[in-house]
């Protein structure tokens, strides 16, 4: 019987699941759902949908791996692994040879230096929403009242991005309200917030001496914004690309880890 391997990434905002084929070379099903209070239920929901999308039965899944903040709550997991490790493995799946991963999620952002999918060094934000998807979401989508998917194209229209003086989400919110009342264009505000978010992430990584070795790949929900990777490129002066499924690398990574565990346990 053909075996499949599943990876479930239960994040702060969304839960993602993937089903990989037996050799872990192809995604045969995936899903992204909103994370609910019950993290186990969120993981189950994501996994069920991915299984459905793959057109297989749950019994055909040999091993399930779990990652993300809710990984320990996911009862069906055969193996759990921290998401930074999974990001390394999973991004290598999508972009072989990647050396730097910038992952911007809802609650945190991470910069990961890796080689052949193995994490060598990393840095992530602490205790502050600045430099996370939430910072961007609160300041742009909610204040400008523009759907998230339209923010990227809007930012690309900017000609004179605003400069935010504060990295505090609350103070920045007041600053933006003030800029709006002064007539700044939504496109410039949107691009300015994007730059502020990304500068914060770059500073965080540079404080820990991360070098942004190329190739650099942007992942996480934030990467779905079509202006995000190009803004990083402008700020870093280096090529930053993204991948087809930027929210899935950690889930893919933990599915690959689940296969390794399966192979080890089957010996």
């Amino acid at each position: 019987m053909v075996a499949y391997f599943a990876g479930v990434d239960i994040g702060s905002t969304t839960s993602k699941a993937v089903i990989l084929n037996e050799s872990c070379t192809k995604i045969v099903g995936s899903s992204v759902v909103d994370t609910m209070f019950d993290r186990n239920e969120s993981g189950e929901e994501a996994l069920s949908r991915a299984v459905e999308a793959a057109g297989i039965s749950r019994e055909e899944v040999a091993y399930v791996g779990a990652t993300g903040y809710g990984r320990r709550s996911f009862l069906a997991a055969d193996v759990v692994s921290p998401e930074v490790i999974c990001h390394g493995t999973g991004t290598e799946f999508f972009a072989p040879g990647v050396r730097t991963i910038i992952d911007v999620g809802g609650q945190d952002s991470k910069v990961i230096e890796c080689r052949n999918g193995s994490v060598e060094r990393f840095e992530m934000n602490d205790k502050c929403a600045a430099g996370t998807g939430r910072f961007f979401e609160v300041l742009s989508s909610r204040l400008l009242k523009i759907p998230m998917e339209e923010l990227g194209p809007l930012a690309l229209q900017s000609t004179d991005p605003i400069r935010l003086s504060s990295v505090c989400t609350i103070f920045a919110e007041s600053e933006i309200v003030s800029l709006l009342s002064q007539g700044s264009s939504p496109a410039d505000i949107c691009k300015g917030i994007l730059m502020s978010t990304e500068k914060r992430i770059i500073q965080l990584a540079r404080q820990s001496s991360l070098e942004f070795y190329e190739p650099i790949v942007l992942t996480g929900g934030f990467a779905r914004n079509c202006a995000a990777a190009s803004t990083f490129s402008e700020l870093l002066g280096k090529e930053v690309s993204t991948i087809d499924y930027p929210q899935l690398p950690a889930a893919v990574g933990v599915a690959v880890i689940a296969k390794h565990k399966y192979d080890k346990d089957s010996r």
Binding site: Y69, S81, I85, V119, I257
Partner: peptide
């Protein structure tokens, strides 16, 4: 619970990285 998530991710990743990124 919200603070422990990133904390555990950081610590567990650190341990894995110290082990040489092996799994």
């Amino acid at each position: 619970r919200e603070a422990m998530g990133p904390l555990m991710t950081k610590l567990e990743t650190m341990v894995e990285a110290f082990k040489g990124g092996k799994y």
